[in-house]
Design a protein around this nucleic acid. Structure first.
Length: 895
RNA sequence: GCCCAGGUGGUGAAACUGGUAGACACAGCGGACUUAAAAUCCGCGGGCGCCUCACCGCGCCGUGCCGGUUCGAUUCCGGCCCUGGGCACCA
């Protein structure tokens, strides 16, 4: 028998694939009658090593590829590298190496690892986003968007490190301090480029309903992110004049509200720290100025803003209530965001949770204007909700939710002329009155903000703009593209190294020829990943896209981490629509079907050091302590034997030492075993917590399959030809039924992309084949049929061993090479049974079984049930009230 | 804080449209083979209790917790708890 040597047959298979270039895809390939199928995985960041998430992601994609190809599709699976970004700069600082060199070496390493995994990648289409031939088109398209007004410039807020004099990414801000300097981070406004994604908000939202191939949860997340809300935008008037003597904002302070029906409950207004009225008031109020400065310190992250204590300070300024004419005090509040709406809100403490908290803290009046909503408690000076109905006392952080809630039967009170109106009536009446006064109108707003694409970083696509003293911001002409990023910079953490590169910065103004300075900001890396899947279709085209793009795109099946559910997927959708509107592509949406792969988590172990720091321990370096029942009660280090803390589970990361290197698994057990195990461990969409306990099991299964196939090689060859299964022995018929049941399950699970049970089905097949008694009538024919099915069903998971066995058993002659062999079919005759077993329940509890002919009708089943001794034993003569018969499944007797 | 998802044996999980909970595996235990070990093969396996010399068998409970709908709920509905992920400059 040929010995099992995974290193040998894996290398042989990979070499054969490479030599024949079998994964190269061609447009309109006549070999594949069912047409194109474009399946793409989100491109990896080239960190240098494949991690478990990659193995999972690309194996899922590889299984689709192979399954679909055997089913007649012209499949393309490309690969590229999301090569720009912060990690390369961090590595550069640590190792004093240029990000470019680090990145290119990592790409080479990772490409080798991909090839060792046996993935069916068409490498002729490989791209790296840091290649000028790629990012040239980022620049070109950015300039087209600038022409169309989709790209524009305005100031934006960033994290600023006052010591390093540099902009910090959110991940570089730790507990409000710069990661390198330790200095408290400040917010700073700088000019940046933005893309008008908000112009597409309505379409991005509306199309979600036309995307049946996307998971509901992702669509919900995107819809919430876009955050459409219908309300009223109106102005409070005032006569607050600036230094120029003119009224600030033309004497109007605009607010947006979804709850115009509560307008008579306004007892204060709140503005963001950056609001012009706040700035104005601070000029004559040092305390307020200090408060605004305090608001400027700290993070720009939404999660931090939301959990901060609600702080505020009065400006001493007043605006006029548009309906009542009352003077309303303006406060500066840290929970009001300048970037949402107009940076000002009306405060209705009686019917808004956050306003209430704010009013209680600062002693502001509370005025109830909806009946039956809140009970005012004099003692506590607080309003308690009488009901948890979301309308009655709604959560103001999600105004659009309240809008959709049931609002029937609640009337306005204490509201003058609006008394006694329902919510809808009151909103309409208030909106109409405000419109008549010329102060406001009904408006749809979105939570979605325009996409800021400027990054004050080195390792990214240079923004193709030249600043000229005479001409202003001048776009680089198309003939001068790409603006090439110098690849020999080594960042040191203090600002962008590009700024210090005179050879890059100093240039001639393209317009007047005078001295100009290049923009040193680079584009957000989300720009790179917004259209790379189009470039795969025409990787070397002299234009951004060409007609080959229309052949492959849109992507039929897109696979990637759930972590990208919002940002990347939304940006790519937006980008595609802009390209469509410019006539470059002819599709509305880029991703027809989406699979969001679950994360791979691992346990985290740590120990506090004497100095207050944290030491992490790799799970492999920790011995877990169990109690008698097998439950985990603690852990200790394998090195010093002392206890370590268990911190739960989290994503695999270098810093927490809980990553697992797939290469190690591949070296010890082979790529097929690694692939099989990762696919078997959990369904593709589920989060799974890593455990390497099963890898050996996967390897053992492959050995078993190999041994079975090799020992039966002669049987298989001698059993060629057709066999009439009606002549098979009963035991052979039973085994064959199990085989075809497993095949049916596998087919179903391939279609619904549940690959863990595909593996189970393969295991069941092998179990059934091993139980076939040698020498029984038809046993040789069944072993032959079974192996031919088993190898094909598992081939998408374990292609290397599949190819080796396929050839060794001589199936190539009958079915052709495994790569393009036809997918096996279920034989309905193999599934047919003469008798079936029905489950017998009494009052819903399992009480026995009844065997009836498979053709039995309801009357026959009922007769069999009534005759059943199991029934008699459990009913003891109690009359039967009802008989529920589920054909083919069970009978429930109700007594 | 908000949004999204998940919670089933010692462990990973399965259960397709509301119909036998735990398929298929891992770890474990028992046995066979072996001078021995590894490998391989066979068997056992949710909890509690009962019956019995033993086999065969029986009852109750059980899918995070509380409640509801139903002949029947891991599955549907309401409320709660816990865990993970995202929150716009990580990719």
């Amino acid at each position: 028998m040929k010995p099992f040597n995974h290193a040998e047959f894996e290398a042989a298979a990979q070499a054969a694939w490479a030599t024949a270039d079998v994964y190269r895809a061609y447009e309109n390939d006549p070999r594949f009658p069912k047409g194109k199928y474009y399946c793409v995985s989100m491109l990896p960041y080239p960190s240098g090593k494949l991690h478990m998430g990659h193995v999972r992601n690309y194996t899922i994609n590889d299984m689709m590829y192979r399954y679909l190809r055997m089913n007649g599709y012209n499949v393309l699976m490309p690969m590229g590298w999301d090569a720009f970004g912060l990690p390369a700069e961090n590595a550069a600082m640590k190792a004093n190496v240029a990000p470019a060199k680090w990145t290119y070496e990592n790409i080479a390493d990772m490409k080798r690892q991909c090839q060792a995994m046996g993935w069916a990648i068409d490498w002729s289409r490989e791209l790296a986003t840091c290649d000028p031939a790629y990012y040239k088109w980022n620049q070109w398209f950015f300039l087209r968007m600038l022409e169309k007004g989709i790209a524009y410039k305005k100031t934006g807020v960033v994290n600023w490190d006052p010591v390093d004099q540099t902009v910090l990414a959110n991940e570089q801000v730790i507990d409000g301090r710069g990661w390198r300097s330790g200095a408290p981070v400040e917010k700073r406004e700088i000019p940046m480029y933005y893309l008008r994604i908000t112009d597409y908000a309505e379409e991005l939202l509306a199309y979600l309903d036309r995307m049946p191939g996307w998971p509901e949860r992702v669509k919900t997340m995107q819809a919430n992110w876009i955050g459409k809300s219908a309300g009223v935008r109106f102005a409070f008037t005032h006569d607050i004049r600036g230094e120029d003597g003119k009224p600030i904002g033309d004497g109007r302070m605009y607010v947006f509200t979804t709850r115009a029906d509560t307008i008579m409950g306004v007892t204060f207004c709140a503005v963001a720290a950056e609001h012009p009225l706040a700035t104005h008031a601070a000029k004559s109020n040092p305390k307020l100025e200090a408060f605004i400065a305090e608001c400027r310190r700290g993070s720009v992250m939404e999660s931090d803003l939301a959990t901060m204590e609600k702080k505020g300070m009065s400006t001493g300024l007043f605006v006029t209530h548009p309906i009542s004419g009352e003077a309303i005090e303006i406060w500066v509040a840290n929970y009001v965001l300048m970037s949402y709406g107009d940076g000002a809100v009306m405060g209705v403490p009686a019917h808004d949770e956050r306003d209430l908290e704010f009013a209680q803290k600062h002693g502001l009046p509370i005025r109830q204007v909806l009946e039956n909503t809140l009970v005012y408690d004099e003692q506590q000076r607080a309003l308690h909700p009488r009901s948890k109905d979301p309308y009655l006392y709604f959560d103001a952080t999600e105004p659009w939710k309240a809008w959709y809630a049931d609002k029937s039967g609640v009337l306005t009170i204490n509201s003058g002329k609006y008394d006694g109106k329902t919510h809808e009536e009151a909103v309409e009446a208030v909106a109409a009155d405000l419109a008549a006064m010329g102060l406001g109108e009904k408006k749809i707003t979105f939570r979605l903000r325009d996409w800021g694409i400027s990054r004050q970083r080195y390792w990214g696509t240079p923004i193709p703009i030249v600043h000229c003293a005479a001409c202003g911001d001048v776009p680089v002409p198309e003939k001068d593209l790409p603006v090439v990023l110098p690849e020999d910079c080594v960042p040191d953490g203090s600002g962008s190294p590009l700024v210090k590169r005179a050879d890059f910065v100093d240039t001639a103004c393209p317009k007047c020829g005078g001295p100009g300075k290049r923009e040193t900001d680079t584009l957000d890396t989300f720009v790179d990943s917004s259209w790379y899947f189009m470039r795969y279709a025409n990787p070397h085209a002299p234009t951004m896209v060409d007609p080959r793009n229309d052949y492959w795109n849109p992507i039929d099946q897109y696979t990637g981490g759930i972590t990208h559910a919002i940002l990347h997927l939304l940006y790519a959708r937006f980008w595609t629509k802009v390209m469509r509107d410019m006539g470059l592509v002819h599709m509305d949406e880029p991703f027809t079907k989406l699979l969001t792969q679950g994360m791979v988590l691992n346990h985290i172990y740590s120990r506090r050091t004497d100095k207050g720091g944290i030491d992490y321990f790799a799970p492999a370096a920790v011995e877990v302590v169990h109690d008698e029942a097998g439950h985990v009660v603690g852990a200790r280090s394998k090195v010093d034997g002392k206890p370590v803390d268990y911190d739960g589970v989290g994503t695999m990361s270098k810093s927490r030492l809980n990553g697992v290197d797939p290469q190690d698994m591949v070296d010890r057990f082979g790529a097929d075993a690694a692939r099989l195990f990762v696919m078997f461990a959990a369904p593709p969409e589920a989060t799974f917590i890593w455990s390497d306990a099963g890898v050996e099991g996967a390897h053992r299964f492959l050995r078993r399959m190999w041994t079975f196939a090799q020992t039966h090689a002669d049987t298989v060859k001698s059993a060629a030809g057709t066999f009439d299964w009606r002549d098979a022995a009963a035991s052979v018929k039973t085994a064959r039924r199990e085989l075809h049941l497993a095949l049916k399950q596998a087919n179903y699970d391939y279609e619904r992309i549940q690959y863990n049970t595909v593996v189970s089905a393969g295991m069941k097949m092998l179990n059934a084949l091993e139980d076939v008694p040698a020498g029984a009538a038809g046993s040789a024919a069944l072993v032959r049929e079974g192996l031919a099915i088993l190898i094909r069903v598992l081939y998408p998971v374990v292609p290397h061993i599949g190819c080796a066995l396929w050839a060794d058993l001589g199936f190539t002659g009958e079915h052709g090479p495994l790569l393009d062999a036809r997918w096996p079919q279920v034989d309905p005759l193999a599934l047919a049974q003469d008798e079936i077993e029905l489950v017998l329940q009494v009052n819903g509890k399992l009480r026995g079984k009844v065997v009836v002919a498979s053709s039995a009708d309801k009357a026959a089943i009922e007769a069999a049930v009534r005759a059943s001794p199991d029934l008699a034993r459990h009913t003891a003569g109690t009359p039967i009230k009802r008989l529920v018969i589920v054909p083919g499944k069970l009978v429930n007797v109700v007594v």
